[in-house]
Design a binder for these strands. Structure first.
Length: 576
DNA sequence: GCCGTTTTCGGCCCGACTGTTTTCAGTCG
């Protein structure tokens, strides 16, 4: 079982326990363990083999026993017993907005509902309003919730939500005549996907801010609307929540609303240990209030340095802050060039000259042209003759540049057996070789892992492109064993790509962090297929930051001479 | 079910909004 599968099962059990009516803290404990297993960055099976399950935070005696049974036999007796009591169908009702464990249990016990469709039917027949604690309004609300559930297909990639959120924030800033409107929540933490958009407004009359917000022309439907918070659905189907408070509490609100929930919970616990109570309004010591106009004030009150939003996932950042060991995260301006872009030589829109010009405009010192290799026919991959023609043109262009250089690379297909799409003598001519998997994506774990590792052991392969192959919202990652890939990358000095294309963001944050811990170096690239595509660098950098990357972990922060030297490391290395 | 510079037992974060209530429970973030 994968970490994800184990985590999902623990979360399912947590839901069942809640519906059953167990003390909520029990369910909480399961969820916490699930979160930590998912964010582990190591294969849980390996942790289990080493007998180190207890070292995972949130795993105690009872969960260790259950995990051991699960990983050893693939089954869990405790879960099977629970299933006898609480059918999985009841758990599925929790996906309906405004239906929690109590309501789910009620719907099941009184109406026998075991699916969202059952609830929908009962609601249409007016049966929900007859249940204790529910009325006509609740019935209507649940029905609307089901409809929105059908509309809402999946989480939204960061690259989609980010521009929408900024446009909304800008509209509201103009409406209110203030600067203090910002996207917050998982967006501000730059998570790879977001469930909804959260906005924050600091305004003297908060109720006017929420009122102006629900009146924005983008708003299709108002879900709730109070003096300090409101929730709407846009015409594009995205849900947006806003919170508004007076500016004097701006720092507390910004901190609170940025999350994550887990990070905030830990901060509050920390506050309690110092005799303070923390909420979005600020600190309280007894009746005495301590306001935080700036976000830094919140952290300083807890004797912590300010923590960058990208780290706020309760993955050790608070402990690191306490010990003064927060990383100095890489920034967008540290990037000196893009190592992965395409041109009209293969499947992209812009010419070599256009891409070079755009890169110089961004202040880059270098740009690697890396069109597809011959095997990727659908992308008009370059055969060896055209590749050499391209080299000639790049050389010619370079004569006209000063303080900037085009490098010649290629994104070379990793074939099904792990061999590469150009022979070694051709690879050797290139400044940068990116090896990527684009075909045969359904191979089983062993075949896929062997394939990728074989490619990495080629001394000419500098970078492994989009290592997991995932396409957010469209395609799962391939079966590749990333743990093994990371180990071999460390051993062979192969650079791993952090691909900034919005629906890739690959590597993800968890594996970036693991890579760094193993001493693997990264390249943050855009994989741009147009001039505008170069702009997505900010998403790639955001992923790197979420993975605790500092500038020195990323090779394209190096000045050109050092980069070129780094790129020869593998050929000169004796370890293969 | 986890966990311990206030505890190996008794805690475990805080508040808004909604609807169905006569003072609060459920849900959400």
């Amino acid at each position: 079982m994968t970490n994800r599968e184990v985590a999902d099962l623990l979360r399912l059990i947590a839901d069942m326990l809640e519906i059953k009516g167990e003390v909520v803290y029990k369910a909480l404990a399961y969820r916490k363990a699930a979160d930590n297993i998912e964010a582990l960055g190591r294969d849980i099976n390996e942790v289990w083999r080493q007998g180190k399950l207890r070292e995972i935070p949130g795993v105690g005696e009872a969960l260790e026993k259950k995990l051991d049974e699960l990983l050893r036999t693939g089954r869990l007796g405790y879960y099977e017993e629970l299933q006898e009591e609480i059918p999985v169908g009841v758990v599925s009702l929790l996906s309906i907005p405004d239906v929690g464990p109590k309501t789910a249990k009620l719907l099941w016990e009184k109406l026998g509902a075991l699916s969202v469709a059952d609830v929908e039917r009962a609601a249409r027949e007016g049966k929900l309003r007859q249940l204790p604690g529910l009325g006509v309004r609740s019935e209507q609300r649940i029905l609307e919730g089901i409809e929105s559930l059908y509309r809402r297909t999946t989480r939204i990639p960061l690259g989609v939500a980010w521009p929408v959120a900024n446009e909304l924030a800008q509209a509201l800033r103009q409406e209110l005549g203030t600067d203090t409107v910002e996207p917050v929540g998982s967006l501000r933490r730059m998570k790879d996907t977001v469930g909804d958009i959260d906005l924050l407004a600091a305004y003297e009359e908060p109720e006017q801010a929420t009122a102006a917000f629900v009146r924005l022309p983008q708003v299709a439907e108002i879900l709730s609307h109070g003096p300090t918070r409101a929730s709407v659905v846009l015409y594009n189907g995205l849900q947006v929540d806003i919170r508004a408070l007076k500016p004097e509490r701006y720092g507390s609100l910004l901190q609170y609303f940025t999350g994550s929930k887990e990070h905030n919970v830990k901060l509050r616990t920390l506050a309690l240990s110092k005799g303070l109570s923390l909420s979005e309004y600020g600190f309280k010591r007894g009746d005495q209030e301590l306001l935080c106009p700036k976000e830094e004030d919140v952290y300083h009150a807890l004797d912590l340095p300010w923590i960058p939003p990208e780290l706020r996932e309760d993955r050790g950042e608070i402990e690191a802050a306490q010990q003064g060991k927060l990383p100095k995260l890489i920034e967008r301006n540290d990037i000196r060039g893009d190592l992965h872009v395409h041109t009209d030589w293969s499947d992209a829109a812009a010419t070599l000259a256009e891409m070079a010009q755009a890169a110089q405009k961004l202040g880059y010192e270098y740009l690697v042209i890396s069109d597809h290799s011959q095997g990727l026919g659908v992308a008009r991959g370059l055969d060896i003759a055209r590749l050499r023609q391209q080299r000639a043109e790049i050389d010619k262009l370079n004569e006209g540049f000063s303080g900037f250089r085009l490098l010649h690379g290629a994104e070379v297909e990793i074939r099904g057996d792990g061999t590469l799409d150009y022979p070694d003598e051709v690879l050797q001519e290139l400044d940068v070789v990116i090896a990527s998997v684009h075909s045969g994506l359904r191979q089983d774990r062993e075949a896929m892992t062997t394939r990728v590792i074989r490619a990495m052991r080629n001394p000419h392969v500098d970078i492994l492109g989009h290592p997991s192959g995932r396409l957010l919202g469209q395609r799962e990652a391939t079966n590749v064993d990333l743990d093994a890939v990371l180990r071999v990358a460390a051993e062979t000095h192969t650079i791993l790509e952090v691909n900034g294309t919005p629906n890739r963001l690959d590597l993800d944050d968890v594996h970036i962090r693991q890579a760094i811990q193993l001493g693997v170096q990264l390249a943050v690239n855009t994989d741009a297929h147009s001039v505008n595509g170069l702009e997505v660098m900010e998403y790639g950098v955001a992923m790197a930051r979420r993975g605790w990357a500092e500038a020195h972990h990323v090779v394209n922060t190096l000045p050109l001479p050092q980069l070129l030297e780094r790129l020869t490391l593998k050929e000169h290395s004796t370890i293969r």
